[in-house]
């Protein structure tokens, strides 16, 4: 009986941790953009067009609630920040794998001649919280992540 109780407690603690960590407020992408502009140097990057999401990440922007995509447009830069709000939580697993593939592809592109780029890519932050996915490759990735997490 004690063993069963032990398993139940472990399970409940795990589920509570997962649940509290996965919780997020319902914030519009416009507000997230505003906070990022106010608290980071995001405007050094360029806001990407809707179709860029398909071109670079292989995702159709119409499949999701909303998104925010900034890129450094210089050919040798790998800096980018992508935040997506999904319609259904089921979409998050697909999204996460898509950005992981993006990182893998970028690493294979820059491997051999772009050690700085590869180092940045290896430190890429991919995080899901509530209905959001956060993906960032940047020297300031931690800062962007901190602001994003504070907003939601």
């Amino acid at each position: 009986m004690i063993k069963k109780g032990f398993f139940v407690v472990i399970l409940i603690v795990f589920l509570l941790l997962i649940y509290s960590n996965g919780d997020a407020k319902d914030v519009s992408m416009k507000d997230i953009d505003k906070y990022l502009k106010a608290n980071t140097e995001i405007e050094q990057l360029v806001k990407a067009k809707n179709r860029d999401l398909m071109q670079f990440i292989g995702l159709n922007y119409e499949d999701f609630n909303s998104h925010l995509y900034y890129r450094n447009v210089e050919a040798l830069s790998v800096e980018e920040l992508l935040i997506i709000k999904v319609n259904s939580i089921k979409q998050l697993a697909t999204l996460k794998n898509a950005v992981e593939k993006r990182v893998e592809d970028q690493i294979s592109t820059f491997e051999g001649y772009g050690p700085n780029q590869v180092a940045l890519l290896e430190d890429a932050i991919i995080k899901t919280k509530g209905n959001y996915l956060f993906f960032c490759v940047s020297k300031s990735a931690d800062k962007y992540e901190e602001v994003f997490l504070n907003v939601i």
Binding site: M54, I57, G58, L59, K90, A93, T94, N97, A98, K101, R102, D105, S108
Partner: peptide
């Protein structure tokens, strides 16, 4: 695999 975009297995969901 090298050139295409991400394509997960349908049954992963």
């Amino acid at each position: 695999l090298v050139f295409s975009t991400y394509n997960p297995f349908l049954y992963f969901r």
